[in-house]
Design a protein around this nucleic acid. Sequence first.
RNA 1: GCCCCCAUCGUCUAGAGGCCUAGGACAACACCCUUUCACGGUGUAGACAGCGAUUCGAAUUCGCUUGGGGGUACCA
Length: 488
Amino acid sequence: MSEVRVRIAPSPSGNLHVGTARTALFNYLFAKKNNGKFVLRIEDTDAERTSQEYVDNIFDSLKALGLNWDEGPDVGGEYGPYTQSQRFDIYPKYIQELLDKGFAYECFCTPEELEAEKEEATQNKKAYVYSKKCENLTEEEKAKLRAEGRKPAIRFNVAKAQAAFHDSSILEFEDLVKGKLHMDTNLIGDFVIMKSNGAPTYNYAVVIDDALMKISHVIRGEDHISNTYKQILIFEALGFEVPRFGHLGMILAPDRSKLSKRHGATAVSDFVEQGYLTEALVNFVALLGWAPSDGEEIKPVDKIAEDFRIGEISSSNSIFEYDKLKWMNSHYIKMLPIEELKEKLKKYLTKYDLSELTDAQYTRMVEITREPLILLSDITDAVSYFFGGENVEIEPEVQTEVIDTEISQDVLKSFVEQAKDWEWSEENLHEKLEAFRSEYKEKGVKPKVTMWAIRAAITGRTRGADMTATLAILGKDNCIKRAKRSIK
RNA sequence: GCCCCCAUCGUCUAGAGGCCUAGGACAACACCCUUUCACGGUGUAGACAGCGAUUCGAAUUCGCUUGGGGGUACCA
């Protein structure tokens, strides 16, 4: 068997979309599993809509996801260049071959003429198929048209190619994920492969690039199924080996429409910005349409690759459920090594003066506040009461519902009284607090209530990180001052 | 309009004719644990789109209907 070579070919007309990321992932997994090569190609034939900024975003996002490519615009490779706009000189050659073989012809139709044809088709409730008006133009006619200043586009002769390589008008291929797929080529119509301005169209450029880059398997979204028939015909007409194709279901938003900004993040970089871990994102996206054989859903990409089989991918669309992604993200946050977490979190702590804390205190603070985090960005709010010295912002409700009660006031007075003699280490605090709680328990005050009073006064909230550690990090001075401030 | 693809709990899925009174995960709900929130644990609820056909037997095969998605460009 020849070498497995797959590719991801994004168009830099926007930041890397999660859908593209998933396609990239499946290609990557397929390459890994089969000891193949993963190629990155930038499809920027439409100069109007593409920009370098997006190219950079695509590179960065793919790298962040851990989907490293073996060949691509930056790392090069045997079959470069890997950016379509740099390959414009190689496309005409094969156009000429197609022309010579009679599989393509010049078309002088104007946009208006074409528009009229389409209009007529809709009127008659028929599928629109190009009329082939220009198929048999004589040299004289062409010369005349040219003299009028018309520049021809090149169209591919579908029927001719189909007849040359197949028995009927039905074109069939075996899809890696969907099985047998077929289409009546009579319904396709002679499509343009080179625009009148000399630029290749997508369907044509893809074939040339895939063929020249020796791509063995094309794994992409099912929105490309209808393009596949056109592409197979070009491969055949040019005598290239036709690759295997695999079409993935689409990713839909919870309302079954296309996933767009209004649903939340859509670009990988958006997710990262919002505090998602790329490890969680890849893992989650792998589970869209695929399930691990051992039922273990949380696993790193290389483990997934071992288990991956393309034929097992679901052929239906799947909905992007943010809830499950969040669950997964919180899982990955819990598993992240503390030093890495500390580093990643800094980005969300810029509003605080981190110099108030020693590194040990910062570490401890992260340890005790990481648990409930769903997004990294949640840390901003989770940690606010560790800063600002003796001043804490107290939520109004906490003030009236908790701090102002008779019991709380009593607890706080007693706390201030006792705490001033405590040795302020976490261990000792733990013991002291425990004793403090039992003392009140004997008076009929639940431990929960006792702790609430202290927590409320010191953090301004009714919920938060482990109290003992919180007190320790804040320091004796701050704690006592904060407690005193809450005593009326 | 025409063409193509798809169809199991709300969601992601397991399921390749009898192992299915359909399994797991997220979400939901309840309880337990607990100094709070959370984590964790234990439970509850929840699906084979409909109709026909094949078969001793169908979630699994076939057909139709319905629903959803995609395509229909000198965009990619």
